[in-house]
């Protein structure tokens, strides 16, 4: 379990990093927290020729409140968000999901951008990003663009980023008025990969009917899975237990296509999607009511 030989660069500026990524193209891998890449290299499943270590690039480490809500530099450590009062206030769904990411030791090194760009279908952050309609800012030597979270994920461990592009920043929008959120997952052990998880956002009108909803699953597809039909079913309805259960049922039976692995077969994952979907919708709806002026 020793990695194959590789060249290592530790640029101090973003420009240098982008130059390196442009120069080496697909032979290069950016190294963020290393919590997924390094084990994969030790198994020799990944054998990048060149590592571009982002850990010395100060401009990628930031977290601030801005127009787009909570703006996180790609190298923001997960633990920083987990401990941030600003994150709790500006992006409470993101904040709620943080402790579910692996273990504290891993979150100390793991980064927001690293997890989002790695696109592991069992990861929490991609599902949260879609549920919040977050945006990703990516750059290459020649180009810079914002990508909506739901367009960012294109398949198993795959994103819309091109070779040479680097994820720079993510913006997680603020909760809207009269909205509630929730995140839950089921893992065999705390800190382990989720067998199923879900993020939900429910927004009510001033008359108490659902105006907008998001329900996004993890670990039941090739990437984060947005249950849009279920969300659409909810719009215009009062969030009763029956309505929310029906939406979760719709999502679990029609909108996901889980594959099995040694920990959870497709039937059990579908069952969990129903259970977790209903739980997060209920809890998001309850919070939305709390957020309504009385």
């Amino acid at each position: 379990m020793k990695p194959a030989a590789f060249d290592y660069h530790a640029p101090r500026t973003l420009e240098e990093a982008l130059d390196l990524l442009a120069a080496y193209g697909e032979d290069a891998k950016p190294l963020a927290g290393g919590q997924s890449l390094v084990p994969t290299m030790n198994f020799r499943l990944a054998q990048p020729e060149v590592l571009v270590d982002l850990n010395s690039i100060e401009e990628l480490f930031f977290m601030r409140e801005g127009e787009g809500g909570l703006h996180c530099g790609a190298m923001t450590r997960q633990r920083t968000v987990e401990r941030s009062a600003m994150a709790k206030q500006v992006a409470p769904l993101l904040y709620e999901a943080m402790p579910h990411i692996a273990h504290a030791q891993i979150r100390n090194r793991g980064t927001i951008g690293g997890s989002l760009a790695h696109a592991d279908p069992a990861a929490e952050l991609p599902a949260v990003a879609i549920a919040l309609d977050a945006s990703m800012y990516v750059r290459s030597v020649t180009d810079a663009r914002w990508i909506a979270a739901r367009d960012f994920y294109v398949g198993l461990f795959a994103t819309a980023m091109e070779p040479g592009e680097l994820l720079i920043e993510v913006a997680f929008p603020r909760p809207r008025p009269r909205s509630g959120w929730s995140f839950e997952e089921v893992a065999r052990q705390h800190g382990n990969y989720a067998m199923c998880g879900a993020a939900a956002v429910v927004e009510l009108s001033d008359r108490g009917v659902i105006e907008r909803a998001r329900l996004v699953f993890l670990s039941v597809g090739e990437g984060p899975v947005a249950a849009d039909q279920a969300a659409a079913m909810l719009v215009g309805e009062r969030p009763t237990a029956t309505v929310l259960r029906a939406a979760a049922e719709e999502a679990a039976t029609k909108e996901i296509d889980p594959v099995g692995d040694i920990h959870a077969g497709p039937a059990y994952r579908r069952h969990l999607a129903r259970v977790i979907g209903e739980r997060v919708l209920n809890s998001a709806a309850a919070r939305a009511f709390e957020a309504c002026p009385t």
């Binding site: 065999r188 067998m195 920990h263 077969g265 059990y268």
Partner: peptide, 8 residues
Amino acid sequence: LSPNRLFE
């Protein structure tokens, strides 16, 4: 056993 097996 496992949660999956118990479910079954």
